[in-house]
Nucleic acid binder design. Structure first.
Length: 423
RNA sequence: GUGGUCGUAGCUCAGCUGGUAGAGCACUCGGUUGUGGUCCGAGAUGUCGCGGGUUCGAGCCCCGUCGAUCACCCCA
């Protein structure tokens, strides 16, 4: 019988790489927590209409990338392709928008898009996102960007850049698109490209072909059509980014894949990732809440691709710590029961302990200790149990010190410099 | 949905113009009494992705199929 295989295009993590994935995700979440964002744990499937209305009927995401199915009650259900629409639904449903504003939440989990997989693109992928709802102020825009930037810096990433733009309000965009279409009508395009331009003229700015790019050089840019208020907000965003020492470049041809963005929009791009270089992006969405049946509230948020961020760390050669490394490895010599009991006592004190099971010779046991990556090891045989004294060995240096079994936990806690931080 | 590349041991791969399958790493055991990493020795491992065809003979050639991967469209 053929062996089972994971479905096409899913990203999954097993040891040892899973420890790095966990660390990357944890770092991003921590960056959100230190800024006061609270957990929103939501379903991975929703009413299909939530996405078609929220994300936008004309987007590729809705038109051809959703995993949609009918449940047993005949309802149309879709696996979430992004996080913001679900958060808005939950905020409205639980009346969070009636309390203190802004509502600041983060989420983390799997998302789904039925695309052809390639490097950095998966059908099931992981995102951590945050949303700040109910406040239209450049300060919160910049706080959101800072949460992402801080996470990247904490991870040690350097080869990424922040691109920002302003998409203006709905009216501005409408007026601009009319002008852009007029311009596009004047340039020669093949049928396929023309069809794309018809659907969303902004996409031509992203075209990979040099001839198209150069023709778009002199196209009108949205920035020139912004209202006074939008222009001022955008200026403030730049001013505040500078205040916080966050580097950025203005990209007034940025294309966003989701329809709901207005005003500030941004994207983090990494240079060493191949075709899928975006590691995260987001922006302000003014009309979304109302569109989904809630109050007229503005919001801003981002989604960061955990898979791609891990790939970026690897591409930069960053050596990531293993979030839950072992402190101690116990090698029993015919004393398995006692060793298990000692391990449990230490674990209750929060020390990370593993031990050799089965009847291993000393040499084999020490080999296991070595490969476990534990900082320390002890051997427990009849002698140690009789005397109550063990040799606590530091694996890296090979040095060992005599410690009584009763003082072992305290000794380890004192020695482990990062104690209390590794969870 | 479209196109390129690739499927040989757990991993990375070699295998000459077709002659009955190899290396390195990893793994297990050992190098005389209870201390790992280096070194030395021994050992286990494959329906050469799958199906068909050509041939005396196919890992190698042909057709199909499945899978992986990268790119396009689009996007985290």
């Amino acid at each position: 019988m053929a062996r089972f295989q994971a479905p096409k295009g899913v990203s999954e993590y097993v040891p040892a790489r899973s420890t790095y994935f966990d660390y990357v995700r944890g770092t991003i979440i921590e960056s959100a927590r230190v800024a006061g964002y609270q957990l929103m744990e939501l379903p991975i499937f929703e009413d299909t209409e939530l996405f078609s209305r929220g994300v936008g009927e004309s987007t590729d995401v809705v038109q051809k990338e959703m995993y949609t199915f009918e449940d047993r009650g005949g309802r149309s259900i879709t696996l979430r392709p992004e996080g913001t629409a679900g958060v808005m639904r939950a905020v409205i449903e639980h009346n969070l928008d009636r309390g203190q504003l802004p509502v600041k939440v983060y989420y983390s989990g799997a998302f789904f898009r039925a695309e052809r997989p390639q490097a950095g693109r998966f059908r099931q992928f992981y995102q951590v996102g945050i949303e700040a709802i109910g406040l239209a102020d450049p300060r919160i825009d910049v706080e959101v960007i800072a949460v992402a930037d801080r996470a990247f810096k904490e991870l040690g990433l350097t080869k990424y850049r922040l691109e920002i733009t302003s998409l203006g309000d709905a009216l501005t965009r409408q007026n601009y698109l009319v002008e852009l279409r007029k311009y596009i009508a004047t340039i020669p395009l093949d049928a396929e490209t023309a069809a794309r331009a018809e659907l969303n003229p902004l996409r031509l700015f992203d075209d990979k072909r040099e001839e198209v790019r150069s023709m778009m050089q002199s196209a009108p840019v949205l920035m020139d059509y912004l209202t006074g208020e939008s222009t001022e907000d955008f200026r403030r965003v730049q001013e505040l980014l500078n205040l916080l020492g966050i580097n950025f470049v203005i990209n007034n041809r940025m294309v966003r894949g989701l329809d709901y963005y207005t005003g500030t929009a941004f994207e983090f791009v990494h240079s060493d990732l191949g075709a899928q270089s975006g590691i995260g992006g987001g922006g302000r969405y003014d009309g979304l809440m109302a569109q989904l049946g809630g109050q007229e509230l503005s919001g801003i948020g981002f989604g960061l691709g955990v898979d791609r961020i891990l790939m970026a760390c690897e591409a930069e050669g960053i050596s990531l710590p293993e979030g839950f490394g072992l402190d101690l490895f116990i090698v029993p010599l015919g004393t398995g029961d006692a060793a298990l009991k000692i391990a449990e006592n230490l674990r209750e004190r929060g020390i990370h302990v593993d031990l050799a099971f089965g009847d291993k010779a000393l040499k084999g046991g020490m080999k296991s200790a070595d490969r476990s990556g534990a900082t320390y090891s002890i051997v427990i045989g009849a002698d140690e149990l009789d005397s109550g004294i063990v040799a606590l060995k530091e694996m890296k240096t090979g040095e060992s010190t005599s410690v009584t079994l009763s003082a072992l936990a305290q000794e380890l806690i004192e020695r482990i410099s990062n104690f209390g931080e590794h969870s």
